[in-house]
Amino acid sequence: MDFMKSERAKESFGPLVFEENRCDLLQNVDTRCLLCEDEFNLQISLPMFLAHIFDVHNIVIEDVQNIANLHDYISYWQQKFKNTPIEQIIPSITFDSTNQKYFLMSNLLKEDKELRHNLKLEYALKVQEYERNDKSFIRFCLMCKLCYEDRHVLKEHMRKKLHKRINPENEEYDRFYIVNYLEPNKSWKTIQKEDDRYAISREVNADEEYSDWNEKEDQIICLFCKAKETDINVICQHMEAEHGFSFTDVTKDLDFFQKVKLINYIRKQIHENRCSYCQLKFETFDDLEKHLTGENHYKIPHLKTFDQPEFYFPTYENDAFLYLIDDVEDN
C-alpha cells in the first residue's frame, strides 16, 4: 500500500514535458547534469534529462519548457552548485508519504527569476537580430499590410500615410515587442495603462486634431559636433570630412545592436565633455574638441568599452541617427 502511495506521489510530482516541446529554445549541444558528470543533448533527450535529475538527484525544474536557452540556465546553476551545496540555495519539499525531499527550482527564488528573465530577453534580442538580417521576407506595411517589392517605395508609403508603427490592435505582433519581455507577466498594454499622461481623449476629432499637421524631416545631428542634416548619408560624409571619422568603416564588423550602443556611448561621452576614445574629461566642449582634433581621437575605443547593456538606451530622446542606421550607405 505504501508502495502504491509512493508511486502516485511520484507521478503527480515528477517532471512534466509538453508534447510540443519548444525545440527552438534548445541548443543542439551536450549539457552536463546539474550535480554529476552525465551529459545530455537537451534538444534530443530533454525528457531523459528531466527524468535523470528527478530520479537521481530529486530535482524538479518548474516550467522548464518556457526557459529560453536551457543550456545556459543549467550551466549557470551547475557552477553555482560547485561552490555552494544545493541545500543552501534551492528550497525543498518533503512528502509525508515517502519522507523524500525534492528540490524545486522555480522563479519563486529571486536569483532563478532574474536568470530566466535575462535569458528570455537575450533570446528575444538574438531573434530580432536574426530577423533583421533575414532576406527571405515580404516587404509589407506593418499598419495596412500592403506589399511592396522595393524597400524605398515601402518607406515612402509609410511616411506619406503616417504608417510608421504597427497596428496596435493586431495581437500577432505582441511576441515581437521587447517591452513584453522587460517586466515578467506584463504586456505592453498593461504597462501603457500605468501612465496615461500622453493619452489623447477619444472625443477629439482626428481630422481636426491633425488638420494643421506639417511633417518635418528628421534632423540628424553629428556625433561629435552640432552640425545637422536631414540625410543620414550627408551627415556621415560631414563626419568623415570634418572629423576624419568614417562611420561605415569603423562599424563594418559590428552588428546592429553594437552600432546602437556605440552611438549612445559616443553621445553620452560628448555630452559630458569626455573623450569617447580615452575617456579624458574636459571643462568645456571647446577644450574637448581641441583634444579630439590634436590627438586624432575621432575613433572608437575597444568593443568592451561600449558594448554594455546600459547603452541600449538612447542618450537623447528621438535620436534620428539611431533609427536610420540601416540607411547608411557604404562609401
Rank of each mutant, 00 (worst) to 15 (best):
D38A: 06
L50P: 02
V64A: 10
L50T: 01
H71D: 06
W77V: 05
I61Y: 00
N69R: 13
N66L: 12
D72P: 00
W77M: 12
Y76Q: 11
H71P: 06
I53G: 02
H52Q: 03
N58L: 02
C36N: 12
L46C: 07
Y76H: 14
F40P: 00
C33R: 02
L34S: 12
D38I: 01
H57K: 03
S45Q: 10
Y73N: 09
H57T: 05
D72G: 02
V60L: 07
Y76D: 11
Y73Q: 08
L42W: 06
V56K: 04
I67C: 01
E37G: 03
N66G: 07
L42A: 06
L70A: 04
C33M: 07
Y73A: 03
R32P: 13
I67L: 02
F54A: 05
H52P: 04
E62L: 08
Y73I: 05
Q43T: 11
L46S: 07
I44M: 14
H52S: 09
P47A: 07
F49W: 04
I61E: 00
M48V: 14
W77K: 01
I53V: 12
E39W: 00
N69G: 07
F40L: 01
I61V: 10
I67T: 05
D38C: 00
L34V: 11
F40M: 09
Q79F: 08
A51R: 01
E39Q: 15
I74T: 12
Y76V: 11
I44Y: 14
L46M: 08
R32Q: 15
I74S: 09
L42V: 08
A68P: 08
Q78S: 13
M48D: 15
I44L: 15
C36A: 12
I53S: 01
E37K: 08
D63W: 08
I74A: 08
L70P: 07
Q79S: 15
L42I: 08
I74D: 10
Q65M: 03
L42G: 00
